[in-house]
Every structure is written in structure tokens, then in C-alpha cells.
Nucleic acid binder design. Sequence first.
DNA 1: TTGCTTGATGATAAGCGTTATCCGTTTCTA
DNA 2: TAGAAACGGATAACGCTTATCATCAAGCAA
Lengths: 146, 146
Amino acid sequence: MPPTRFQSMLANLRTQGHRVTPQRLAVLRYLAESAEHPSVEDIYRAVKADFPTTSLATVYKTVALLKELGEAMELGFSDSGNRYDGLRPYPHPHLVCTRCRKIMDPDLEGIADLTAELARESGFRILTQRMDFFGICPDCQKNASP
Amino acid sequence: MPPTRFQSMLANLRTQGHRVTPQRLAVLRYLAESAEHPSVEDIYRAVKADFPTTSLATVYKTVALLKELGEAMELGFSDSGNRYDGLRPYPHPHLVCTRCRKIMDPDLEGIADLTAELARESGFRILTQRMDFFGICPDCQKNASP
DNA sequence: TTGCTTGATGATAAGCGTTATCCGTTTCTA
DNA sequence: TAGAAACGGATAACGCTTATCATCAAGCAA
């Protein structure tokens, strides 16, 4: 049985000699269970429910640490807060609803091929990639106000 | 003979009832000639060379106006200043050198198909998209320090 | 278990790019 | 060419993120 995301994050933390604190555990747990690509505020709110003295700074620091360890991926947005993915911490495409800000993970084939072709044609050594599709999700289309 | 980007921007500005000022002309001219996806600072520096009293706020306002008119596209980056494309103000993929911050426009086929497939499978109404490939450009690979 | 070292936490200030405000100036129409 | 309305310039405010620093606790050794 493969380790859960939570177990993997925790093991990585320990292996790299970082301390395990209740606040960190709470952040890990939340990220390991969230498919919604939460914001720092989302994480902060959730963690504070269990651990009311937690500071926003701690959430930022923990998230930065997980990013460094490769256990979380940051989705930066210049016009709103960044979002985090603890379940699939590697590049993959995203579907972003511009109305409710929901972010989903679509299945999309052929990105590796696309990247390889691009590298060959351009001479770039491509290290990572970001692919976002913006639109209106099915739910928001139903509850549509123009 | 089709209108140049500069002519097109200017015409759009006039048609929509916006005033034509020397500062705006300078920003248009620079954007219409730049394939480098300049930052606001880049534009500011260039405009100030011809028009030294120009304010940074004016550049921001002009760029926002052009964006609104569909004559410039913003490339937002959460970890550095945004960049602007006045030559191709519609979604297209970008190659970003993470060392020298150069941004290029590769030729890449099949994005429309990819988008259509994604819309069909997900039920999203996709309105726009963003596709960035990050890596080291050929120049920086030559002058490589580890 | 206890004590110690070092890293983590919490509160808040600082930083950075961008946007808002406000008043004097300029464009453009009539 | 005169007047109304929009624009420009200077700077304050904003939102998110990072830095600072004193206090506190995790983890190790004895």
C-alpha cells in the first residue's frame, strides 16, 4: 500500500531534519486532504479551527517549506492570492473558473510531447511549465446571471 | 497594406473617444515596436527618455487602458513584475527564460484543438488560456555558470 | 526525566508591484 | 478660442508576501 500524501509529506519533513510541530501537522493534513487548491487564507482558517493561536506567517512559512521539499506546488496568480496543490505537486494543467475561483485538474494528454517538440525547435532547456484554462464551470453556468 | 500595430492602437483609442496625448503616443509607440514583452518599468524608462516628466502612474494607466481596448495583453507573474504584449494581444504560448527573463513567442500548433477537447470533456465554457514554458534560453545555456 | 541547543512560532513591520486620490494641466469640441 | 471633461503627475494607500526578532518548544543527550 503506497503512503498517503500526508505520510509522504511528513516523512520528507523528518528526513530533511525539520521539526514536526502541531501547526505544521495541521497544515500538512489540510493540504493532503484538499483537492480544491486552497489559498493561504483557506489553510489559515482551517488550521486556526484546531489551533487558534496559529499565525498567518506560520502558514506562509510552512507552505514555503513544503514547496522547497517538493511536497506542494504553488499556483501563482498576479491578480489574486496564490493557490496550493499538495496532492499533485508537479506541473499539470488547470481549469480555473473565473466566477467562483474553483480550480480543477483536467485529464489532458500529450503535454510531454508538446514540451519536447518545443524544446527541440526553440533550443530552450525547458524545466517546468504552466498551463491554465480560464472559463465558467458547469455549476456557475447553471446559476448564471449574465 | 494592413495597418501597423501602432496605427491600429491609435485608431482604437480615437474611436472609443479617448484623448491622444504625447505620453500615450510614446507608450503606444514603444509597445507597438517591442517584441520583448516589456515590463512597466521598461516602458517607463523608454518613455521618459523622450518625455522626462512622465510619471509611472501614467504608464500604468495607459497600459490598463490598452488592455481594456484589447490592444495589449498582460502577462501576469506573481513573483515579478507583469509583462505586456502589444504585438499579439491575444492568448498564445510563451517561452520564458528564468535566467535572463527574456520572453519569446514560439510557434505551437494544436492549442485550439486541445482547448476544444478540454471544454467538451469538462463542461467548462473556456474563455481564455495561458500557456507558459519556463527554462533556460540558448544564450544563457552558452554563458552558463552552474 | 531533565536540561540544553537550535529551530519554530507569533506579532508585526517592511517590501513590492499596483491602484486610488487629488489637483493642476491639456485636449478637443463647439 | 473658450469651456467642459479627461488626463497627467506626485504620492498615499492597498493587498499579498517576506523579514525581523523575541519568546517558546521539539528533539537529543546524559
